[in-house]
Amino acid sequence: MNNPFEQLGIRPDLTIAIADLDRAYRAAQRSLHRSSDTRNRDQEQARLNHAYRTLKDIPARYHWALESLLGGGTEMETPPDQDFLFEMMEIKEELESLSATEDKAPLEQLSTRLSGKALEMEQQLAQELNASLSVPQGARESATSVDPGLLQRHAHWKYLRRLAEEAKRAMAPPTTPSSTPGSP
């Protein structure tokens, strides 16, 4: 399996900032552009673009990391834990009732709380995954020895992340509010 970090010439790090990723991407494209070998340049460029896209999209980035650790063909979808699901349903209800109210302050609090929690889970996942990714492919233990809870934590994080995004959307409706005092 292609390692997008390798393709962009950087050390695997799931917490990489977009700005650093952008820089690596441009550097890789630059060296491809300046190389004298012009064969398959379009395809090579497309491959770099794909690696860049995989890492730029955070869920895709983690999905790739898990898949590469577990090996292809592994069932990635894991049902969330019942207690977790129950907790999420409650938050969802809270979110819905808050979205309907005029006062946006409680909604903002909930949104901040959700984003914070999602980020916390993301960092934990990143730590776990980074540790495994730094082990060279050949030296890794077989896929079955990966912590079985990892997939579920990943599923929980994805769920929470979606919920946090929903909360953000509820705060800023898609109609771009005009900052003008109104046209005559």
Binding site: D42, Q43, Q45, A46, R47, N49, H50, Y52, R53
Partner: peptide, 8 residues
């Protein structure tokens, strides 16, 4: 806004 060339 996908960078081109691209293949998917």
């Amino acid at each position: 806004n996908t960078p081109i060339p691209a293949r998917r």
